[in-house]
């Protein structure tokens, strides 16, 4: 029973971070209608920012406030100068923007590899391996703090999307682009802000993961895959769904690691992905109607 609860807690904590990754991807998906296949790579960049600041003695939770704005800016620039110009090009491939994100992901990975080499780095802090006990269940302090911060960002994001004009414009653009233009929404600017926000959120996830994970250039790929799985699980473009998707993936990986084998962590996620595509093609959105 203790093992079960332990696994459950670990899964939920991890799920909170995954939700953060998923919401960013989902926002971009909703507004631009594309899957951002550089999502994990953007997170990797944020992790390296955390690593460099860590070398300078800055705590990862503080470097959040550097990495997030930096990635927000990077995201805005990518959308403005690399993705939006593609909209003006007539081609037979409507997936141009998606292909571009693949390329951006590769470039980011190789630039980081060029600077830092392929070595595994770690951002170990005093609390990286610290735990506290509640009954017989141990909590990783680092993951616990990360979870709380992740929830705070998620709540802030929802508040932003529901209560502000820019937030509403983002949702409106996702629901009906032409109608949004008629209402005076500058949809070009909205896509730029959205990509920036998505990048900023995944940067937060990167900073929060850094203390409990290894940092290396190729870490982006698996996280892009996770972000993709979470987005599909949640139903494309649904932010609430992305939270469910994130927690589900976190739980699935956690239980898989405990009850099957540590080595199968990634296979579990992919298995769930395939099962959802087969039996619940709309994702959790179909169940919740949100």
């Amino acid at each position: 029973m203790d093992v079960f609860l332990q696994t459950l807690v670990a899964g939920i904590l991890k799920g909170g971070l995954y939700a953060l990754i998923g919401i960013g991807m989902t926002l971009i998906m909703g507004v631009m209608g594309i899957i951002n296949l550089a999502h994990g790579q953007l997170m990797m960049v944020a992790m390296y920012i955390t690593y460099v600041l860590h070398l300078a003695g800055v705590d990862p939770y503080i470097s959040l406030f550097v990495a997030m704005p930096a990635l927000f800016l990077l995201g805005c620039l990518i959308q403005r100068f690399l993705l939006n110009p593609l909209l003006k090009v007539d081609t037979i491939l409507p997936e141009n923007q998606v292909l571009m994100t693949v390329g951006i992901g590769m470039v980011l990975t190789e630039i980081i590899r060029f600077i830092f080499k392929s070595d595994y780095k770690s951002v170990s802090t005093g609390y990286s391996n610290a735990t506290f006990f509640l009954g017989n269940i141990s909590f990783s302090i680092a993951l616990g703090i990360s979870f709380i911060i992740a929830i705070a960002f998620t709540v802030a994001m929802f508040f932003f999307l529901i209560k502000t004009d820019i937030g509403r414009s983002i949702r409106a653009t996702a629901q009906d682009k032409d109608a949004a233009v008629l209402m005076g929404v500058n949809t070009g600017r909205i896509t730029i802000i959205t990509f920036g926000l998505g990048s900023g959120l995944v940067a937060a996830a990167g900073c929060l993961l850094a203390p409990v994970y290894y940092v290396f250039p190729d870490i982006g790929g698996p996280f892009t895959a996770r972000a993709f799985i979470i987005t599909i699980l949640g139903g494309l473009g649904s932010t609430v769904g992305a939270i469910f998707g994130g927690v589900t993936l976190g739980l699935a990986e956690s239980f898989g690691a405990t009850y099957i084998s540590m080595d199968y962590e990634n296979i579990i996620g992919m298995t769930i992905f395939v099962l959802v595509l087969l039996f619940l093609p709309g994702g959790f959105k179909r169940l919740t109607k949100i």
Binding site: R168, S169, R171, D176, D178, A179, L182, V185
Partner: peptide, 17 residues
């Protein structure tokens, strides 16, 4: 061409940007 998933009031607010 309403914003279907937004409430009536949010749709109204979208008219006044």
């Amino acid at each position: 061409r309403l914003f279907r998933e937004m409430s009536v009031e949010e749709n109204m607010v979208m008219g006044s940007l």
